[in-house]
Design a binder for these strands. Structure first.
Lengths: 173, 173
DNA sequence: CAAATATATTTGCTGCGTCAAGCAAATAGT
DNA sequence: ACTATTTGCTTGACGCAGCAAATATATTTG
């Protein structure tokens, strides 16, 4: 499967794959925007804030280390740091020095934060149903979930300090 | 909770839907980042630039009105304007006053731009295969494409002034 | 035909998230 | 114990994309 050159043979996408790619690419841009907009207009809360609160609410003690919260949200640690700061000024989250490792911090969901999340939930749920679930059949849902979980699975969430740096060649310019 | 109040009954997500949502949410963040990073490191070109070039290359006369290019790329018109500016300074695209309507502009792909796109293609193809297609079965690809096409389908791509004549909603698409 | 209005695109400002650098605490090496 | 390195998080600077206002051209209206 290689020509005499060193380059691997690249098989172009089939028509179906091409269509999938285009539909995906569009949806990956528009869906988050739509969810964010609904949440923002309905609850004055951004999607990333909602997501952070959600993950905290599910964590034991409503508490997560910053880095764990960041990877749960698939955001960079620095981005997460700013989001938690925003949430903190609203009193929805507190930062607590981690016991046993004083350089670590736990983001802890406050009662106010939990209440806020609960109030935002219906808005978000309706939005998710409208923009996504209503367009999926019961069959496709489980069929695709596994695939999605593997998409870009090896990709680190930026902030290289979080992970090893995997490097590949440049091509040209 | 439902009957007498004005609020619609919100059915929570099933476990499968919940899993889908989470997998999607993560993938929608990580995949574009991964494709962008590959293109950037391998070709010094961003994913949005690549996408713009691609749509232009497929348009008749390698030419599209700014607003059409924006909606093809699912970007705001203002964002598109800046992208075309970047591409223009690299000589990959030119702006040509639209014949017949002098307030309109056509973004036109230059020969250099087409060459650049062709050179970037293998990198992008490999990236798409690696991060997405390799994780999809032949069955799921066509099964999901239609659903994806309807995700957030009614969502305008921002820049409300774009205000297309998208009049009364038809049945679907 | 002039004024009013609508359309196509660009530009100013702003928020978000990333990278790179920085700081502090923990761990390793000697 | 003392310095070096690593780890966890925050912060400064930056780029990208979005909204709203500005600009330029078209079209409609009186």
């Amino acid at each position: 499967m290689a020509t005499t050159s060193g380059e691997p043979v690249l098989v172009p996408l089939t028509g179906e794959e091409e269509a999938f790619l285009r539909a995906w690419s569009r949806a990956a841009l528009t869906v988050p925007r739509a969810l964010d907009a609904d949440l923002l207009s309905g609850q004055g809360m951004s999607l990333s804030e909602y997501t952070a609160l959600m993950h905290l609410s599910e964590a034991p003690g409503r508490s997560l280390r910053m880095s764990d919260l960041a990877s749960a949200c698939a955001l960079s640690l620095s981005g997460m740091s700013r989001i938690v700061s925003r949430l903190e000024t609203q009193g929805l989250v507190e930062r607590a020095r981690a016991s046993g490792d004083r350089r670590g911090l736990n983001a802890v969901l406050t009662d106010a934060g939990l209440g806020r999340l609960r109030r935002a939930w219906p808005t978000h749920l309706a939005s998710v149903r409208r923009h996504m679930m209503d367009h999926l059949s019961e069959l496709t849902v489980p069929a695709v979930t596994g695939a999605l979980q593997n998409f870009a699975a090896d990709t680190p969430c930026a902030d290289p300090q979080q992970e090893v740096r995997r490097d590949i060649s440049p091509g040209n310019a």
